[in-house]
Amino acid sequence: MKAVLIDDEQHNLDNLKALLAQYCPQVEVSATALDAETGKKLLYEHQPDLLFLDIQMPGQTGFDLLQSLSHYDFEVIFVTAYDQHAIQAFRFAAVDYLLKPVDITLLQSAVQRAMKQRQLKVHNQQLENLMHLLKTQQVKEDQRIALATTKETRFVRVSDIICCESSNNYTTFSLTDEEELLVCKPIYEYEDILKEYGFIRCHQSHLVNKKYIRSWKKEYGDFLLLTNGKEIPVSRGKKEEVKKALQF
């Protein structure tokens, strides 16, 4: 894979280039840039398969650069210092990011995922979803989340998710149209990013969207009855937290 690296600090570029050469020989670094303007020219000139992009740079940020492009026919791995707002957006859009200093194992995994995605498509829908999220500051009712199944990445409105149920490292999403999506990630990956959208962790294995809770049943233990007919258990340890979230 041909790659372009953009970071405003030369030592970061040198370090990443060395790591790629040693641990990711399938990646050929075509060019590097210290600012977004130069980086944009390199993208048009080299037509890379993969872009490693810093976010916080003087002048234009990495997001500014991407928003100035008309299409995304390459994969992106963001390389950044810790930024909670940005990371939340990355997780919603299911795009890869690495925190500085770069961990070798995570770098190799991100490159492998990028190669797999590159083989599947030319147009980067995840990145487009991220840019749409950042550009429009979507209202919560219209917010979409990227859910990666074994066959595809689906972009689902958060408001259409009724509940999530975990099974080891997989999570099943139940939707309002009665469809169920099996996603290749554990439920804890979604708890933080969905809680501000009204989702409640009522049990170790369950997240529920409180707008779809019909009642609290106490016949044989504590259960939440959802509008789709599912009965979701409320664990003893989560009982008070769920009551507080439901305001009763």
Rank of each mutant, 00 (worst) to 15 (best):
D7N: 10
D7H: 09
D8Q: 12
E9F: 07
Q10M: 02
H11Y: 07
H11Q: 10
H11K: 11
H11G: 03
H11E: 07
N12H: 12
L13D: 11
L13G: 12
D14W: 00
D14E: 11
D14A: 08
D14P: 08
N15R: 11
L16V: 04
A18F: 14
L19T: 10
L20S: 14
L20Y: 05
A21W: 03
Q22N: 15
Y23S: 15
Y23R: 06
C24S: 12
P25M: 15
P25I: 13
P25L: 11
P25W: 07
P25C: 08
V27P: 03
V27A: 02
E28Q: 15
E28I: 12
E28V: 10
E28M: 12
E28R: 13
S30L: 06
S30T: 06
S30K: 06
A33V: 01
L34S: 06
L34K: 09
L34R: 05
D35S: 08
D35C: 13
A36S: 13
E37Q: 06
E37R: 09
T38A: 15
G39N: 05
K41F: 11
K41S: 14
L43T: 03
H46Q: 07
F52T: 14
F52R: 07
L53N: 08
D54F: 05
I55A: 11
I55C: 13
I55N: 10
Q56E: 15
M57T: 15
P58A: 15
P58W: 15
G59M: 14
Q60D: 07
Q60N: 12
T61G: 13
G62V: 01
G62E: 01
G62H: 01
G62K: 00
F63G: 03
L66D: 00
Q67T: 02
Q67H: 03
S68P: 00
S68M: 00
L69M: 03
L69I: 04
S70I: 08
S70F: 09
H71L: 09
H71S: 04
Y72A: 00
Y72G: 00
Y72Q: 04
F74S: 02
F74P: 00
F74C: 01
E75W: 03
E75S: 03
V76T: 05
I77S: 06
I77H: 10
V79C: 09
T80E: 02
T80C: 03
T80Q: 00
A81P: 09
A81G: 12
Y82M: 12
D83N: 13
Q84V: 11
H85I: 13
I87A: 05
Q88A: 14
F90E: 05
R91F: 04
F92L: 02
F92Q: 00
A93Y: 00
A93H: 01
A94V: 06
V95R: 03
L98Q: 11
L99N: 02
